[in-house]
Structures are given as structure tokens and as C-alpha cells.
Computed example of a mutant assay.
Amino acid sequence: MRRRTTRRQPVLVYDGDCAFCTSSVRFAERRLRPRCEATPWQFADLARLGVDRRRAEHEVLWVTPAGSVYGGAQAVARLLMSSRGGWPVVGALLTLPPVRWVAHAAYRLIARNRHRLPGGTAACALPSSARSSRQPS
């Protein structure tokens, strides 16, 4: 879904209730320094971004200023392509078949098991409907 916007940089939308996701985003901000705004979906104006809540609960999203939305491994690829150093090359490789297919499978495997990974917590394994909802007031 595309939506017109006046944003100047992409937005990375992630699960702020998941410690693994939050730790991963903080690591990327410190080490990769991507050119984007990172925000938990729980605090994002999803309608303004043109993103459905179910999709935001399911995968990390990269929303371009023009309104294009990339999810999962392709969102990670876009994050890497916006980073400094040699990371844009890695990100570009993740967009090419068959690497893209492998990246998708790896992303789904990690997403299903994020509660078992370093930084993960039991809350990461819960469906979003069972977690505490932290909506902005």
C-alpha cells in the first residue's frame, strides 16, 4: 500500500514489546547508523504510514518517504542499504534471488524463535494480543 507523505527519511517499524527486536534495532542504530527513524509499532501512527496493524505485529517494516512498504528480510535489506560502511552491499545482495529467498526463510526462522535468542524474553513468544498494549495516550 502506498501513501503520500512529507517525511524526508524512511521509518523502520518494529515490535517494541520484544526485547530481541528492540536490542537488534538499538544495535543497528549504534553500529550501522542507518539513515532512518526507528519506532515501535506500538507508538507509530500506522495509518499515517499506510501500514496495517496485523502486518506490523507480524514483521519488521521499512516505510519509504514515498510510502512503499517492505517487510521482513526485505525491510532488513533496506535498513542495511541505508547504513554506512560496507553494509549497503550486503543489503543489496539480500534483494537478489536466490539470496532473497534464503534471507526470507532465515528471517521467518528467527522471527519464530526470537524468544530463544540473546536479548529475547518470554514476551517475544506471546501473540501480540496476549501482551500488554502500550498505546500512546
Results as ranks from 00 to 15, higher is better:
Gly71Leu: 06
Ala75Tyr: 10
Ala19Phe: 01
Gly50Thr: 01
Thr39Lys: 14
Val90Ala: 14
Gly16Val: 10
Pro88Asp: 11
Thr22Ser: 12
Val63Glu: 07
Trp87Asp: 05
Leu12Glu: 09
Pro97Trp: 10
Val51Ser: 04
Leu61Thr: 15
Leu126Trp: 04
Gly71Ile: 02
Gln42His: 13
Pro34Tyr: 05
Ala19His: 05
Pro88Trp: 03
Arg78His: 15
Arg53Val: 13
Cys124Leu: 01
Val89Arg: 11
Arg33Lys: 15
Ser133Tyr: 08
Leu80Val: 08
Ser129Val: 11
Thr22Leu: 05
Leu93Trp: 09
Thr95Trp: 00
Gly72Cys: 09
Arg131Leu: 00
Gly50Tyr: 13
Leu96Thr: 08
Ser128Phe: 00
Arg26Met: 08
Arg30Ile: 06
Gly67His: 01
Arg78Lys: 15
Val76Gly: 12
Leu117Asp: 06
Phe43Leu: 15
Leu109Asn: 02
His58Gly: 10
Ser137Gly: 13
Phe27Asp: 06
Arg134Thr: 12
Leu32Met: 10
Val51Gln: 00
Val13Thr: 13
Leu96Arg: 14
Ile110Arg: 03
Ser83Phe: 08
Trp41Ala: 09
Leu109Ser: 12
Ala106Pro: 01
Ala75Val: 01
Thr64Leu: 07
Ser137Asn: 08
Trp87Ser: 08
Cys124Trp: 00
Val13Ala: 12
His58Arg: 15
Ala111Leu: 01
Val60His: 10
Thr5Pro: 00
Ala92His: 07
Arg84Cys: 00
Val11Ala: 15
Arg108Glu: 10
Cys18Trp: 04
Cys124Met: 02
Leu12Tyr: 05
Pro98Arg: 10
Gly67Phe: 03
Cys36Arg: 12
Pro118Asp: 07
Arg53Asn: 04
His115Thr: 06
